[in-house]
Design a protein around this nucleic acid. Sequence first.
DNA 1: TTGTGTGAATTCCTTCACAGCG
DNA 2: CGCTGTGAAGGAATTCACACAA
Lengths: 207, 207
Amino acid sequence: MNEKNIPAIVISRLPKYLITLEKLHNQEIEKTSSNELGALLDITPAQIRKDLSFFGGFGKKGSGYSIPNLIHVIRDILNLDIVWDVAIVGAGKIGQGLALYEGFLNRGFSIKVLFDNDPNKIGQRVGVHQIYDIRNLQVIIQDLNIKVALVAVPQAHAQKVADQLVQAGIKAILNYTPVYLTSPNSDVVILQIDPILQLQNMTYYLK
Amino acid sequence: MNEKNIPAIVISRLPKYLITLEKLHNQEIEKTSSNELGALLDITPAQIRKDLSFFGGFGKKGSGYSIPNLIHVIRDILNLDIVWDVAIVGAGKIGQGLALYEGFLNRGFSIKVLFDNDPNKIGQRVGVHQIYDIRNLQVIIQDLNIKVALVAVPQAHAQKVADQLVQAGIKAILNYTPVYLTSPNSDVVILQIDPILQLQNMTYYLK
DNA sequence: TTGTGTGAATTCCTTCACAGCG
DNA sequence: CGCTGTGAAGGAATTCACACAA
């Protein structure tokens, strides 16, 4: 299904379609159209149809898309048919905030462990999660076979942590520090969440 | 200088150039080239030169760009010649984490106020910041003439808060909730930071 | 010689417009 | 009819390649 080389920009829109479809689904709506979806997302209907057509024809001519089916299909494309276990590195405010956030599970992710290097934090709980010693990071991640990690440590430690994660077999890193992380391993996906990059982008349009 | 209609994608790269230039600057490096910058950012040199040429010719043929000058120019383009005051709405873990983060100031932003609706939190301090009653949001934001806000409230309240912010004169909102915020006012810039959208994007490339 | 700035070429992405199916 | 799926057209963004200035 996702054999061909799908443009990254197409993939990046699928999660947006998904969250909107799930919202409609929660309202017990069963069908939608590229028109309706486009209006909700501020994306042209043609764009949505073309994006979906990369993967097959999921709609019915004249009547649109079955929402449950389209949710299923998109989750499948994005490999969200399974729940991904997640490790959080750094139990500061951001790390703890992420650990306590309850929105992960029904969108395909389950927080499994939380690491810190502060002896006062190690062993403590954050919600249902225990904080583990970062020195055990590699062993635990390998044992639990975790592939996805969030990095929320002080920026000075970010690259070192990333290296350890990659060595432990992590394949996707979401980086909350303002450091460009690199991996020698080219099959690791790294994305950055730097709020200041976004703010600096917005200020261009002000004034 | 930024009169013409510059593609948004060009603007979105300028903060990345800036953070890299600042990093070089901290290492006391005075000059760089589109080649060097491109290697650091994984962007082609031609792309960088073309982006910068939208705003003028800032390099010297044969020798490249003066880093202090280019930093100055980009900050100027992005309206970062002034420091923007910022309000944070929501003093949960994420809001507090943002409030305590010390990286804002030297990148052009200064956290000025923090709001919450929890009586137990109102009046407390988070670092140097005091938590204010969200009922005073509009008055305080107007009085302080704040234009930039971070929203880190539970998602059920996100749109209501955004409406209040817009009414108080906020022009840029960085939204940490997984809700698509809208503004009747089209001169308000809203960007979303939803970690799950990013994670769902990454899982496509796994397995 | 080096590395910018930029038209031209190319590649990529979006939108159009409509045949065709339900 | 209504709405999808899709070739073809159009538009945007990236890359090429080179004249030119330091």
